[in-house]
């Protein structure tokens, strides 16, 4: 359940930005979570509820932009969607590819008041 640590990191970032902007509280937190980031959105939402208690972000709504994974095949050079981290290239069936999208773990924006 490393999502608890991840949630704590989010709280730190959010608190930092909220204070810099003289926020009274945080209403919403928008995150980018990649499909192969190693973070499970459901676990993160649960961890968030626990971690946000008694912080400026308590009761803030979490919005997760789930970002699909994409890879470029090193053999046929084509780009394809990665359904799983261990997929194969859908064009030439190669297993050699580089992931170009889907590892994101980012706080995009917050809504404060």
């Amino acid at each position: 359940m490393h999502e608890l640590s991840v949630a704590q990191n989010i709280i730190e970032i959010v608190t930092d930005f909220a204070k810099k902007n003289h926020a009274k509280r945080v209403m919403e937190v928008v995150l980018d979570i990649g499909a192969v980031s190693g973070v499970i959105p459901d676990n993160l939402e649960f961890a968030w509820e626990v971690s946000a208690k008694n912080t400026i972000a308590e009761n803030a709504l979490i919005k997760i932009n789930y970002i699909e994974a994409k890879a470029v095949c090193l053999d046929c050079k084509k780009e394809f969607n990665l359904d799983d981290i261990y997929s194969i290239c859908e064009y030439c069936l190669s297993t050699r590819y580089d992931i170009i999208q889907g590892k994101e773990l980012k706080v995009k924006s917050i809504i404060i008041e």
Binding site: E12, I13, N21, L105, V107, I110, I112, E113
Partner: peptide, 17 residues
């Protein structure tokens, strides 16, 4: 809630580590 506004953050969650 009339004061609520969006703040761009754009920070990697694992940045500190």
């Amino acid at each position: 809630h009339s004061h609520s506004h969006e703040v761009k953050v754009e920070q990697d969650i694992m940045q500190k580590n």
